[in-house]
Design a protein around this nucleic acid. Structure first.
Ligand code: ZN
Ligand code: ZN
Ligand code: ZN
Ligand code: ZN
Lengths: 160, 160
DNA sequence: CCGTGCTGTGTTATATAATTACGTGAGCTC
DNA sequence: GAGCTCACGTAATTATATAACACAGCACGG
């Protein structure tokens, strides 16, 4: 799965595949992908961008869901705690996972111009964080690694 | 300067040194370390922990400052944009810089038990973020690298 | 000396993000 | 069918951050 957000790709396929995978994982693990949870995941999958909880809420409302904030936050809690989505701390926003398996250490590249977000993988204790932790005797449980900058497309636009 | 937050050290000295350095830097660069800005920096320096803007605001108020939110946010904007403090995205909070020079790429180790934060340095384009950026053709302008976990002291406590 | 522009501050109001609290109902177990 | 758990509906509240506007101090050039 998972072309990066910055490459052109068959996005309908990309959405469908992620949904099927989420359904399979839920079935395997006895998790309930309820309508609200499923719809929020679909909304996140529609674009490789991070959406705020209230953006999602607005989407749900225009679709007739008469939803209050907890609806979105509950769905997002479910999705993030089971690895179907991630929170992007630098944006107070959420993005669908493009790497399937639960429990990884995601890194994000966030374009400040077009807002697209692409995800890659790291080791929990790799890099500068890992070295600092080792030196300090710190046990890492979770990491936040995000870069803000310009994606290839927006770099090209800027140059023009 | 800058013992890590997880080592015992002469913290009065640590505060004083940071303040002197900030004053020197401001003098050199024609920046104005006004009373509000200075006091907020002092508050951040008091502990190696991240404080929310409203925590700082409360501190100012108990000291008689009759301060509204913009007071804190303006001071924090000044401090963060000139490298005297950093924003910890994972906590929506702020911490004094322990590495002097402006324009570095900080990494943070955040203890979820005692809340202390220690800072180390990275290269802007190093590690998994740098590799992902290179592969994608992404230009990194700024990074967020934070680890949540347990500091040595809290690890020891937990083991007991 | 006076106007002008700049920077920082005081204050009110508002916007945005997230959580608490409490009740309801569906499905399951025994 | 009583008791349990999980998810959801809803209202209210808290937490975080910014907008907008008035004004004071000060440097600069006339
Ligand atoms: Zn896609
Ligand atoms: Zn872009
Ligand atoms: Zn110290
Ligand atoms: Zn600790």
């Amino acid at each position: 799965m998972a072309r990066t957000a910055f490459e052109t790709h068959d996005h309908r396929h990309c959405i469908a595949e992620s949904l099927v995978e989420a359904e399979r994982t839920c079935a395997e693990q006895g998790l309930r992908l309820t309508p609200a949870r499923r719809r929020v995941l679909e909304i996140l999958l529609e674009e490789h961008r991070a959406l705020g909880a209230y953006d999602i809420l607005d989407r749900l409302r225009t679709e007739g869901w008469r939803a209050q904030p907890p609806v979105a936050y509950r769905a997002l809690d479910f999705l993030t705690s089971h690895g179907f989505a991630h929170r992007v701390e630098g944006l107070n926003a959420f993005v669908a996972c493009t790497h399937g398996k639960d429990g990884h250490a995601p890194v994000f590249l966030i374009c400040r111009a077009c807002n697209r977000v692409t995800e890659a993988e790291a080791e929990l204790t790799s890099g500068a964080l890992g070295r600092a932790a080792k030196a300090a005797g710190f046990r890492i449980e979770q990491t936040v690694r995000e870069a803000i900058g310009l994606c290839p497309a927006c770099l090209a636009t800027e140059a023009a």
